[in-house]
C-alpha cells in the first residue's frame, strides 16, 4: 500500500460521522471510571469507549479517542494523565486493527484482543510510570501495590511492571467484555452506516430491486390479506416456518427464530 493511499485511508476515517462519535466515546471512557468507583473496584475501565469506537470507525479514530481522553483528563482532572496518552493511542491502534481483521466476531478473537490490549498497555504505561514519574503517580491502587512489591522485590521496574500487569489483565478483560456486549446491542441500522468490514460485496445486495415487486403485496398487507408471495427477504422467516411443519408466518416464535438465524450468519 503506497504512503499516499494509506494517508488517504486514514484521513477518510475522520468523517463528520466519526468525528461526532469521538466526544461521546470519550464520555463512555469516563463513565467507565464512574462505574468502577460505584462498584468500589480499584480499576480504571477507561477504554470501553475507545474499544466501541474502534469497531465503528477504525484504528486511527480509536487512537484519537484515546489521546483525547487523556487530554481531557489532563485539562479537567490532573495533568498527570497526559503522558499516558501514548499508551491510550497505541492501545486504540492495536484494538482497531485487530477488530478490522475481524477478531471481534469470534470469542477467541475477543480473548486475543483482551490479551493484546493488556500487554500493550502494561508495557507502555509501566515505562511511562517509571521514566516520567519515577514509579508512582500518587495514592492509587496501582501505586500502593507497586510500593508493596518494591519492599519485597527491591526493584522498581519489576514492581511497576507486575502491578501494572495484574491491574491491566483484570481491567482490560472487563473493558473488552463490556465493549463487546455494547457493540452487539447497537441497532443494525446504526451499525451499517459505519460498516468497516469491506462492504463492497454489499453493493449488489443493496440494489433497488423491490421497487415494483411489492406494490401489490403492500396493498394486500394493508388490507389485511396475507401475502402468498415469498420474496428473497422473507425467505428466512418462511423457511423457519416450514421447518416447523408449515405454521403461518404470523407466529411470533417463528419470526424470532428467523431473526436469530439472520444474526448468526
Amino acid at each position: 500500500m503506497s504512503a499516499r493511499s494509506l494517508w488517504r485511508g486514514i484521513t477518510a476515517q475522520f468523517s463528520t460521522k466519526s468525528l461526532v462519535l469521538i466526544p461521546i466515546a470519550v464520555g463512555i471512557n469516563l463513565i467507565g471510571g464512574t462505574l468502577s468507583s460505584a462498584l468500589k473496584l480499584p480499576l480504571f475501565l477507561d477504554m470501553i469507549g475507545t474499544t466501541v469506537i474502534a469497531c465503528l470507525s477504525g484504528p486511527w479514530v480509536a487512537a484519537l479517542c484515546g489521546l483525547l481522553t487523556n487530554v481531557f483528563l489532563a485539562l479537567v482532572a490532573n495533568p498527570v494523565y497526559l503522558p499516558y496518552a501514548l499508551s491510550s493511542v497505541l492501545c486504540g491502534l492495536v484494538i482497531g486493527y485487530m477488530v478490522k481483521a475481524g477478531l471481534f466476531k469470534r470469542i477467541w478473537g475477543v480473548v486475543l484482543v483482551w490479551l493484546a490490549c493488556a500487554l500493550v498497555n502494561t508495557v507502555t504505561a509501566s515505562l511511562i510510570t517509571v521514566f516520567v514519574y519515577g514509579g508512582a503517580t500518587g495514592v492509587n491502587g496501582t501505586s500502593v501495590l507497586t510500593a508493596a512489591l518494591v519492599v519485597a522485590v527491591k526493584n522498581i521496574v519489576i514492581s511497576v511492571l507486575s502491578s501494572s500487569m495484574l491491574e491491566n489483565l483484570i481491567d482490560k478483560g472487563i473493558t473488552v467484555l463490556i465493549a463487546y456486549v455494547i457493540v452487539r446491542r447497537i441497532p443494525k441500522r446504526f451499525l451499517s452506516q459505519y460498516a468497516l468490514d469491506g462492504s463492497k460485496d454489499q453493493d449488489d445486495l443493496d440494489d433497488l430491486d423491490d421497487l415494483d415487486e411489492d406494490e401489490d403485496k403492500e396493498e394486500r398487507e394493508v388490507a389485511g390479506v396475507p401475502s402468498r408471495e415469498s420474496s428473497v427477504r422473507r425467505g428466512e422467516i418462511d423457511s423457519a416456518a416450514e421447518s416447523d411443519g408449515g405454521t403461518s408466518t404470523g407466529d411470533p416464535a417463528d419470526l424470532d427464530r428467523g431473526r436469530t438465524q439472520r444474526s448468526e450468519r
Binding site: 441500522r189 451499517s192 452506516q193 460498516a195 462492504s199 454489499q202 443493496d206 433497488l208 423491490d210 421497487l211
Partner: peptide, 15 residues
C-alpha cells in the same frame, strides 16, 4: 426518487 439504506431489509422510499 427511491432510496434504500445500506444493509436494510427493504427500500425506504419508492418512486
Amino acid at each position: 426518487f427511491s432510496f434504500r439504506y445500506r444493509d436494510a431489509d427493504r427500500t425506504t422510499l419508492k418512486r
